[in-house]
Amino acid sequence: MAHSFWPGLAVQISTGFSHGSTSIFAPAGTPAHSIFSLSMLVLSIVAAIFLVVAGLLLYAVVRYRHRADAANASVEPPQIYGSTQIELSWTVIPVLIVVLLFLATARIILTTQNAPKPANALDVTVIGHQFWWEYDYPKLGIVTANELHIPVSDPKHPTPTYLTMSSADTDHSFWVPRLAGKMDLIPNQINTMWIDPQAPGLYLGQCAQYCGVQHAKMLIRVYADNPPEFAAWVAHQQQPAVDDPGVAEGRAVFLHNACMSCHTIAGTAATGRFGPDLTHVASRDTIASGSVTNNPANLRAFIDNPATFKPGVLMPAMHLSQHDLDAVVAYLSTLK
């Protein structure tokens, strides 16, 4: 343990902060960058204050400790009641620091939250559900869940993504630390934020507002795609669901059970809205809002009893027979 602990710690410190998948010190988008530079200013001010005050404190504690063997050990030290000027100094200096910090902060708040929206920005509506994410692309006619695909934004020709957020039930919070600060999703209220990843890749995050039992596994996956890949993804998602006659049995099982009252599969009778849209479920990397890899075995286990992966999930155990289970998994696996 001890052998692996300290090297492990060192690795964590050196790489964890800068390259961690969810570290706020590895910004990859404009909002996260401006927060990062502001936080560096704040950190340096705070560190300077700490060094000065803690240093003085340490000095006082050591220098003025009572020494029982001193000649004057039983003499009271001089009684000093205060001093206007030193007290004034340590009132004014903090006020100046506050003014400085405030001006810097106000600027970042305004540049982030009042940023003008470019015409070529992508709009995505994010709806928080217990315990998954719904992503609608109103202008593209796409509805998907849990895995958000957006284009990479080139700093020279920014194509940011504007998220319009609300909740279907309790409060949630959308937090992808490398892209931006968090923003809450609150029922009856529309919040907005924007993100502009500047490098392709997968950005992770998770719900940051306690929303119920399964809050912990309400994970966020944001895929920043290069423009051609993103266009391909959009084109694919706009298609209706694959209708493979080979899995007609599974399709029937799906449509004749309660599945269809909660899930939508475009092009079929299933138009439920309580659960994630499954039209292209097989094209996703994960199921159960990012907590499990998407493969037939996991899918099967999840449908059989969702609570094995996500205790407290709102989807009930379906109690399908083994045969039906296999059929429905086979069907869902074709929904690329």
Binding site: Q85, I86, L88, S89, V92, V95, L96, V99, L103
Partner: peptide, 20 residues
Amino acid sequence: VIHGLTSLLVGLLYGAMLPM
């Protein structure tokens, strides 16, 4: 506002700290 406030505060600080 910015200049006046800062000048006043720094002036106060001068008043308090110069004697030190």
